[in-house]
Design a protein around this nucleic acid. Structure first.
Lengths: 148, 148
DNA sequence: ATAAATTAAATTGTGCACAACTTAATTATA
DNA sequence: TATAATTAAGTTGTGCACAATTTAATTTAT
């Protein structure tokens, strides 16, 4: 028998890991109309809030680096959702801008957050507490990981 | 300006997704001694609890399918942590068994759960509530995803 | 007993995710 | 003002993750 603390059911991090995967599976049918993956949907969420930002800024908000974003943005450019062009002021930077199609996609996304809340089946109070813990863990871990 | 519900900061699922990734990064230095990835560590946790189970059973516990497990188990076999052999009673099944090295690795893992708790920086009550919400979301989503 | 259905792994193909490195542009400094 | 240091993207290589399909073994139903 394994050490009690090494049992899978006692691993909070396993719950996060598994919940994240089940969550992206849950999103799949909801994103069918948009024809994007969950990470691509996150890129759209950021650009709908603020269009014309750099790859770097996108990565800062999504906690992703260029190694992940560059190929993903290329796929999204190919599928017609956005454009990538070098900044004239600083040729190192690449500015990401939504196309007409990318902007219009927001309409099709409006109801997704409500469907997600339904699927989670938690009351407002629990959801609020849950999200607060998640954000706390996220920010704490991110800060820790940055330092080292 | 984007619809309020479509703002990234209001997305509980983004918190799960990002926290899961920061969590695996946090584990990296803790797993260095074992020389395994986080998903491989989860396989070890299961086998330390019950050795000699099938790929199927492993997948049921970790919410992973053979498409993910088969290549991962092959890597772990190559690195000497486990063995894979067909069951004589049912040639379809593959039984996964720890090697001496795989069993011994448990000793090196004993202190990991405590280090993790430290890194999360939550008091016991919050941690308990947090995990309860995670497990609830996980099981609810899993059940939902199975059905469809 | 044999054909049909089911089950367990493996395979194939696509898309992240990230560490480590490279390239090119900009900024800081001697 | 050369040169060193820094910054921003991109590239390379490895390892998941999963849908869809394939292969082979076992069960079920005819």
């Amino acid at each position: 028998m394994a050490e009690e603390h090494l049992k899978l059911e006692n691993q909070i991090c396993f719950s996060i890991y598994a919940a994240a995967r089940e969550m992206t599976k849950m999103y799949k049918p909801l994103l069918q109309k948009l024809d994007v993956t969950y990470p691509q949907y996150l890129v759209l969420l950021v650009l709908w809030e603020e269009d014309g930002i750099t790859v770097n800024e996108l990565g800062r908000r999504l906690y992703l680096d260029s190694g992940t974003l560059t190929p993903m943005l290329k796929r999204m450019e190919t599928s017609g959702l956005l454009e990538r062009k070098r900044s004239p002021e600083d040729e190192r930077r690449v500015i990401v801008t939504l196309t007409e199609q990318g902007r219009n996609a927001e309409k099709d996304a409006r109801d997704i957050p409500f469907q997600v809340i339904d699927h989670l089946a938690m009351d407002e109070a629990e959801l609020k507490q849950f999200k607060a813990s998640l954000v706390k863990a996220l920010e704490h871990l991110h800060e820790r990981n940055e330092k080292s």
